[in-house]
């Protein structure tokens, strides 16, 4: 029983630290890549505003890949 307890405690601490680091890494990544001009996250907000079928996608998907999936799902 004590062994399980111990493993439980250690696993909990390690995983929490790990996830916290990832979360911080994520924050830094988000802001740094935007500062450097690599990516613009705020443009994604447009996905809700320009959402007509014929409005241009923010990130266009490869049309061939799409057709392939579409075919499979309508068979």
């Amino acid at each position: 029983m004590e062994d399980i307890r111990f493993i439980q405690g250690v696993a909990y601490i390690i995983f929490t630290i790990f996830l916290t680091l990832i979360l911080y890494g994520y924050i830094i990544h988000l802001y740094r890549s935007e500062k450097k001009g690599e990516r613009d996250y705020e443009k994604y907000a447009k996905m809700a505003l320009d959402d007509e079928l014929d409005s241009p996608p923010v990130d266009k998907r490869d049309e061939k890949e799409r057709e392939k999936k579409l075919k499979r799902s309508s068979e």
């Binding site: 399980i4 307890r5 995983f15 996830l19």
Partner: peptide
Amino acid sequence: AFAGLIEIVPDFAQ
């Protein structure tokens, strides 16, 4: 799933 795994499983036997 992580929270459930850590929280619930080890205390079952006891």
